[in-house]
C-alpha cells in the first residue's frame, strides 16, 4: 500500500500528466484522454484532503474548488483565446465563492465586479479587436511537447511537496485555530463590511491614497501609450513612410 505522502505526490503527478496531454499540440483524442487523467488526478488529490467537519461545508467547498480548478485548467488548454477568457471568468466566480465561504463577503463581490466584470471584459474587447477569427497557429502549436512536459513537471513537484508539508503541519494548525466566538468578534463579525472599511481607512490610509495614485498613473500611462502609437503611425502615413514597421 502507498503511504500518505506517496498518495499526494502521485496524485499531483497524475494531474500534471493529464494537463500535459491536454496542452496545445495534442489532437482531440489525446485531449479527451488528458481530461480523464487530469480529472482523476485532481479527484485523487482532493480525496486525500481533510474533511471540513459538516457535510454541507464539505459539499460547498469541494464543488467550488472543483469548478475553480477545472475552469483554470480549461483556461490554459483552450485553443481559442476568447474561450480562455470566458473560462477564466468562471474560475473567478469559483474563487469568489470560496471567498464568500470563508466570510470575506466584500472580496467575493469585489472579485466579481472588478475582475469578472471589468478586467475580463476588457480582455475580451482587446481579443476581439486583435484576433477576430478565433484560433491562430500559435495557439494551436504552442512551444512543443518537451517544453510543455517540463513546464508541467515543475508545478507538479510544487503542489505535491506543498501538500506533503501541509499535511504534516495540520496538527500545528489545529492547535492555533481561533474559536468561533473570537472569529465572530473580528473577521466574521456581523457587520463585516463596516469592520473591513474601518480597518482599511484607519490602518491602511496611506496605502489607499497610494493605490488611488497608482490607478491614476496607470490610466494616464495607458492613454499615453496608445496615443503615442497613433501619433507615430499618423506621422508615418503623412510623410509617406508606407511601411508599417
Amino acid at each position: 500500500m502507498l503511504t500518505a505522502n506517496e498518495h499526494l505526490i502521485g496524485s499531483a503527478v497524475v494531474a500534471a500528466l493529464g494537463l500535459w496531454l491536454m496542452l496545445p499540440p495534442s489532437g482531440e483524442r489525446l485531449r479527451a484522454l488528458g481530461l480523464v487523467v487530469a480529472a482523476s488526478g485532481l479527484g485523487w488529490l482532493m480525496s486525500r484532503m481533510p474533511g471540513l467537519g459538516t457535510w454541507a461545508a464539505d459539499a460547498a467547498f469541494w464543488s467550488l474548488a472543483a469548478a475553480t480548478s477545472a475552469a483554470a485548467v480549461a483556461t490554459v488548454v483552450s485553443r481559442n483565446p476568447v474561450y480562455s477568457a470566458l473560462w477564466f471568468a468562471l474560475s473567478l466566480l469559483g474563487t469568489a465563492g470560496v471567498f464568500a465561504l470563508q466570510g470575506a463577503q466584500f472580496l467575493a463581490v469585489a472579485t466579481i465586479v472588478v475582475y469578472a466584470g471589468a478586467i475580463v471584459v476588457t480582455f475580451l474587447f482587446v481579443l476581439m479587436l486583435a484576433q477576430p477569427d478565433g484560433t491562430a497557429y500559435y495557439d494551436r502549436v504552442g512551444w512543443g511537447r518537451v517544453t510543455s512536459l517540463l513546464a508541467c513537471a515543475c508545478p507538479a513537484v510544487i503542489v505535491g511537496v506543498l501538500a506533503m508539508m501541509l499535511s504534516s503541519s495540520l496538527a500545528g494548525f489545529e492547535a492555533g485555530t481561533a474559536t468561533v466566538a473570537e472569529l465572530a468578534a473580528n473577521v466574521r463579525h456581523e457587520e463585516h463590511v463596516a469592520r473591513l472599511g474601518g480597518t482599511l481607512f484607519t490602518d491602511h490610509l496611506v496605502a489607499v491614497e497610494l493605490a488611488g495614485t497608482l490607478l491614476l498613473v496607470a490610466l494616464v500611462g495607458a492613454v499615453a501609450i496608445t496615443a503615442q502609437d497613433r501619433q507615430k503611425t499618423d506621422a508615418r502615413k503623412t510623410h509617406g513612410g508606407g511601411a508599417s514597421r
Binding site: M49, P50, A57, T68, S69, V98, P155, A163
Partner: peptide, 19 residues
Amino acid sequence: SEAALLHNSLMLGAILFAV
C-alpha cells in the same frame, strides 16, 4: 474545522498558482 479549511484553501491556491 478551521484548520482543515485553511489546509484545503491553501491547496486550492497552490493548484490555481501552478496551473
